[in-house]
Design a protein around this nucleic acid. Structure first.
Lengths: 101, 101
DNA sequence: TATTATACTTTGTATTTCAAAGTTATTTGA
DNA sequence: TCAAATAACTTTGAAATACAAAGTATAATA
């Protein structure tokens, strides 16, 4: 067993809520704040800070606009984010494989 | 995609260092503090607190004895811990599978 | 037109993580 | 031989993280 591999896991991706966000965003063109909030079932504040964290890391892009006169926060995964997410998933696979053998 | 599954992941297991500890302990009868420290490559304090956390959760048992006149902290995974670890790995597998499809 | 709802962000707090320093005993080296 | 270094930890304090309560601004509803 190589525990180093576990410790190499990207901490930005690893957090459950952020993992869920990225996981959703890989499957769609974009998703808005409300959709993410409902789907992940978290609080506004919590989602807001996690989205900022992902944006700071360059893993997602956040676009602010208006739907009618209400704010609309639209998120989509970036190429960097997609790569980071896929790497993370691959590393998990490796870890699981080792675990099973 | 079902993000709920990600949020269901056992937080006690999820932390990289604790995941590494459990991962090591599943493969051996027991491991002592020094071995874990060297293998995981973490600081004494950090390892100590994570071991306590796992013990509190009932996932490992910690036995304190002496090797000669030096303290010896021996850790082994409990049945509860083994179940929690396997569940975690299975959940990860599910998540990855969904991700790939 | 007060009240509730929507769509967020900011702020404060509680928890978690981490490593520096502390403890106790044991070698080693001058 | 006694000071210094090492071993095997635990405790403590600081920093980061997570979380939700409260705040802001607008819109719909009753």
């Amino acid at each position: 067993m190589k525990p180093e591999q576990i410790l190499e896991l990207d901490a930005v991706v690893h957090t459950p809520i952020r993992l869920a966000i990225l996981s959703i965003l890989t499957g769609v063109e974009s998703a808005d704040f409300t959709f993410l909030k409902k789907t992940i079932n978290t609080t506004d504040g919590n989602l807001s800070t996690h989205l900022s964290k992902l944006e700071e890391a360059g893993y997602i892009t956040i676009t602010k606009s208006f739907k009618g006169k209400r704010p609309l926060t639209t998120c989509s995964i970036s190429e960097t984010g997609r790569k980071a997410f896929l790497l993370y998933i691959n590393q998990l696979e490796q870890i699981i494989k080792m675990q099973k053998s």
